[in-house]
């Protein structure tokens, strides 16, 4: 059941775009934040707002891996098992978590807390092996740290991303992806350690772009140098 407030927000998303159908992906994120998964009611509502058939909306919802047709736990734990992370330990982390949580791929623990899935490359290869919790980075994991991580999540302890804020619930995360910010943008660092290694070496050696002073945003030259 999609209530009137959600319906209004879905319409608000559609209105961001020159053609309203462009709003469908963020609209489906919002459906997930409200319903906990993609539901027939959510599909019908999106179809009505966009003047397209429910089949067309379903066709989109089934194409993208972030849209779930089964209930997702409070915490979606994604273990990268693409090649680089797999080789660096991701495969062993995934095996350990399946065993530790007693679930298979894309399954949820009995307490409804954790949904485990292996995910594809999440653009953090310099922090391998990587685990994502509700699409926040948990960098440089081991089987032990990952087991501790899911234990903490299930116990309701506050968990903080290694490069971001405290982990919000999956439904709260989906709302941000729908384009409704949660005011946590200022939490966490600008960059993790691996993002800065090259910059630090350049600083130590006094290396810069030609004629550029250290620390300017667009590499502007300094006249007084």
């Amino acid at each position: 059941m999609i209530d009137s407030q959600t319906r209004a927000e879905l319409e608000e998303i559609a209105a961001r775009y020159p053609q309203k159908r462009s709003g469908l992906l963020p609209m489906l994120h919002l459906v997930q934040s409200v319903e906990g998964q993609i539901t027939p009611a959510g599909i019908e509502t999106c179809a009505e707002i966009l003047d397209i058939s429910a089949a067309e909306v379903s066709g989109v919802a089934t194409f993208y891996t972030m849209y779930k047709r089964r209930p997702v736990g409070d915490y979606h734990v994604g273990v990268c098992t693409n090649t680089l992370c797999a080789i660096m330990g991701g495969d062993l982390i995934f095996e350990r978590l399946k065993d530790h949580l007693d679930v298979g791929n894309d399954e949820t623990t009995d307490d409804g807390k954790v949904t485990l899935e292996h995910v594809e490359c999440n653009a953090a290869c310099d922090y391998a092996p990587v685990v994502m919790v509700n699409w926040e980075f948990m960098d440089n994991q081991t089987p032990e740290s990952a087991a501790q991580l899911v234990d903490d999540l299930r116990a309701g302890k506050e968990v903080t991303s290694t490069r971001g804020p405290r982990i919000v619930t999956w439904r709260e995360a989906e709302r941000v992806l729908a384009g409704f910010p949660d005011d946590l943008a200022d939490d966490g660092p600008a960059a993790g350690p691996a993002s800065l290694v090259g910059l630090q070496i350049a600083r130590q050696n006094g290396w810069t772009a030609p004629g550029v002073s250290t620390g300017s945003t667009t590499g502007q030259r300094e006249d007084d140098q």
Binding site: A190, W207, T214, S216
Partner: peptide, 29 residues
């Protein structure tokens, strides 16, 4: 001779609150 590393895009990543407008503009953004 150009230096081995030439930070331009990465050059402000170690700044305090680099993601904010005030930090970016304070460095010429």
């Amino acid at each position: 001779m150009t230096d081995v590393l030439t930070p331009v895009l990465t050059d402000n990543w170690d700044a305090d609150r680099a993601w904010t407008l005030s930090s970016y503009e304070s460095r010429g953004g």
